[in-house]
């Protein structure tokens, strides 16, 4: 068993008097697709942002490919972030750049790739998410689902070791969720190492190999999706998952007419 791609140990984050999360430890192996679920406000997004050092955890350590990235002498923050991809709930595309430029800019300005080479790579990634024909469009001219797919392409272009998804479909209209989930499922099948915070249970059951339930800043339960859905250890877990599934089922029923 090779070493895990990403390891977090005893991460704690407080904000003033509020404890966002305490003593969180997890480990992400190559090709894992891990889904994190839990009630809103339990610190899932903050946890994700701590993993790629956008936010500083108050205590705890993080390793990427065996290198401790929370130690500033081992690797610079910016450098580490090149190897961790992140997709945000609000897409956060760069408004002044076309879709193609959005995907390219990391390659040309951060990786210092020559322009032609970067362009080709960017086109490949856009192809991968099915948006090659929108390469010249600006974010304002794209639908939410298209914007999110470009955001995924942008993150993928950097060839990260692991992709973090922070509620990638929560800000989308229901009809647009499917196209984004399709891309994500494809990625999982291709073997991308992924950590996804989401409410989309369908996604979890289809492609996730591990699931984590977080509540009140703690990891309550961990296991395979089947474990948590069929044989949850805690009543709370069952309550939450079945509530979500019910909503999801109702939504699916509505959509299917």
């Amino acid at each position: 068993m090779s070493q895990p791609v990403l390891v977090a140990q005893n991460l704690t984050k407080t904000y003033g008097k509020n404890v966002i999360f305490r003593d969180i430890s997890l480990s992400v192996n190559e090709r894992d697709t891990i889904v994190i679920v839990g009630p809103s406000g339990t610190g899932k997004s903050t946890l994700l942002r701590c993993l790629n050092l956008l936010t500083k955890a108050d205590s705890g350590k993080i390793w990427l490919d065996g290198v401790e990235i929370t130690d500033p002498t081992r690797c610079s923050e910016d450098e580490c972030r090149q190897r961790i991809g992140m997709v945000f709930q609000n897409f956060l595309l760069f408004n002044h750049l076309t879709a193609l430029d959005n995907v390219m800019i990391g390659l040309t300005k951060v990786k210092k790739m020559p322009k032609e080479q970067a362009r080709r790579k960017a086109m490949e990634e856009l192809e991968r998410v099915g948006l090659i024909d929108r390469a010249g469009h600006y974010p304002g001219q794209l639908s939410g689902g298209q914007q999110q797919r470009v955001a995924i392409a942008r993150a993928l272009a950097m060839e990260p070791r692991v992709m973090l998804f922070d509620e990638p479909t929560s800000a989308l209209d229901p009809e647009l969720i499917g196209e984004v989930l399709a891309v994500m499922k494809q990625l999982a099948r291709e073997g991308m190492t992924m950590l996804v915070v989401t409410h989309e249970m369908g996604f979890a059951r289809e492609v996730a190999n591990r699931m984590i339930f977080m509540e009140k800043g703690q990891i309550l339960e961990e296991g395979t999706p089947d474990d948590l859905f069929e044989r949850p250890k805690y009543e709370r877990t069952r309550q939450f998952l079945w509530k979500i599934a019910e909503l999801h089922g109702r939504k699916a029923a509505e959509e299917n007419g």
């Binding site: 790629n52 956008l54 910016d78 450098e79 972030r81 090149q82 991809g85 992140m86 945000f88 609000n90 956060l92 595309l93 760069f94 408004n95 002044h96 800019i105 990391g106 300005k109 951060v110 942008r154 993150a155 950097m158």
Partner: peptide, 23 residues
């Protein structure tokens, strides 16, 4: 948030200011 997205792809603050924020 634009700054956050820029940093997420590995840009330093300076690069983010120059290529994303200022334009």
């Amino acid at each position: 948030e634009q700054m956050m997205a820029a940093r997420a792809i590995g840009m330093s603050r300076l690069k983010a200011i120059r290529y994303i924020i200022l334009p």
